[in-house]
Write a protein that binds this DNA or RNA. Structure first.
Lengths: 261, 261
DNA sequence: TGTCGATTCCCGCTCAATGGTAATCCTCCT
DNA sequence: AGGAGGATTACCATTGAGCGGGAATCGACA
């Protein structure tokens, strides 16, 4: 599907190029871009020029290339995530006002948790979540909540794969994980004491959409030593219900009509 | 620069396809996409398939196509706008708490104002700003603030073009606009009584970056009949200074050292 | 002045992209 | 059941856009 010697399509190379940028490398020269992507020099220059023409990439005064505004605009204009984010933001602010640590909103994407919003620039606590950042499902409270409320088929497929054991408390055994997921469904929240970063601990609850399926996970990251971590749960749950309602959710009683009056 | 009969590159067509989606058309069938973009049927299907493979587009259960999560992720990961947005958000929340109407953050992009953040879902007031939405520079308070603090060369080029007169109060004469811009620079804010939508009125102030150039415009939209609109200015200005500082701005005294002690 | 890297220019090769036509699938209506 | 209309897939001959190696140019730094 491509003209290239390596067998990549232009679209594939486009993704490769844009993927070369992240928060640690927000801008770079075309030559470096070529090196990072492994594309032939000439090809890189030609492709980058095409992208500059469409403003998907931009060149800043010193000549370095960075991801263009147009890219963000295109991605956002038709995105369903904007609705989710906008519905969640006010509730996240409320949480942030009460729980003084960072609050995140994550969705399940390509078998990973993708964080689409994050509030709280609290530097006193280690928190590796970033907006547009990804973390593994089975090692985050958000991921476990999302997995716990996913269709059985998806869970089965996910649990069939080998899982990385980040710390000794990371559950990787399918059976153990299944028990944990059931527990999460029953309690309504997931709590993960420092699975990736030992010093911090995450608590997450599910957010549902109008069709009663999980849309996202709302979570807070708190210091691990904090004793009253479970006390955070009711606040989170209330907020999650608020967000769910804003998304058209009508309560968990599926087949039943709501009691009017 | 393209294999196509119409002389478009793949990248150009990619942009065309993604551009076909907006908040009024967040999802559509491939056939409709082809119609909206004017691309040949077969070509549309082939290209859409490529984009689905890279997850730049996604197909929802009923078969319709929508902009993919990957697109947003790629656009956000390396974006400089995220930093601006994150710096501004807390201050925007503060404004939102005081001024009960909608608060927006806009930047200058392709001779238009592009709104990158918006708080406040107040439906009582007409407000056409949307996140990732665009409005003309000379007809919005945000636009005028951004223009007022732009390089002289940019202003000249902008004023050389013919400008649409939206209402009878829209300034379109270069000379009159220049006077208005000077006034905005001197007063430090722009106030536009209902230029596009007569019922509402915008007030905007500039946000500066570390190099002392305008990075964005912070603005609130209030009902036009509200008498104490100018009273909003100090709050806006204080917030804008806060955001500017978070971006590395060190006050307007350029060549002078700050008084230490 | 010389070195090294980034960037642009040049150019022949070739296969991926193109887009027409036609077959198939799928709803919805009668 | 039948059939009309649209969406989607399959097929395929044509061709020029994309490709990438190589060399020239630009630019910064020592």
């Amino acid at each position: 599907m491509a003209n290239s010697a390596s067998g990549e399509s232009i679209i594939g190379r486009f993704v490769k190029i844009v993927s070369a940028f992240d928060d640690r490398h927000p801008a770079m020269s075309v030559a470096e871009l070529g090196r990072r992507t492994g594309l032939p020099v000439t090809t890189t220059y030609r492709l980058v020029n095409d992208l500059l023409l469409e403003r998907l990439l931009e060149r800043d005064p010193d000549g370095d290339i960075h991801v263009g505004t147009r890219m963000w605009e295109l991605a956002s204009r038709g995105s369903k995530m904007l609705g989710l984010r906008e519905a969640a933001l006010p509730f996240m602010e409320d949480i942030q006002a009460v729980v003084q640590h960072s609050t995140t909103l994550g969705i399940l994407d390509s078998d990973e948790v993708l964080y689409i919003e994050r509030l709280g620039s609290d530097k006193t606590i280690v928190d590796i979540t970033k907006i547009a950042g990804r973390l593994p499902v089975h090692a985050t409270s958000s991921g476990l909540v999302l997995l716990a409320h996913s269709p059985a088929a998806y869970q089965d497929a996910f649990l069939a794969r080998p899982l990385t054991k980040f710390t000794e408390t990371t559950l990787t055994e399918p059976a153990a994980l299944r028990r944990h997921l059931a527990e999460i469904r029953q309690r309504g929240f997931a709590a993960m004491p420092g699975v990736i970063v030992p010093e911090s601990s995450g608590i997450a609850v599910p957010v549902f959409g109008s069709d009663n399926t999980v849309r996202a996970a709302l979570s807070v990251v708190v210091p691990r030593n904090e004793e009253n971590a479970p006390a955070r749960v009711p606040v989170l749950m209330a907020a999650a219900r608020g967000i769910s309602r804003a998304l058209g959710w009508r309560g968990e009683l599926k087949g039943t009509l709501r009691q009017s009056h």
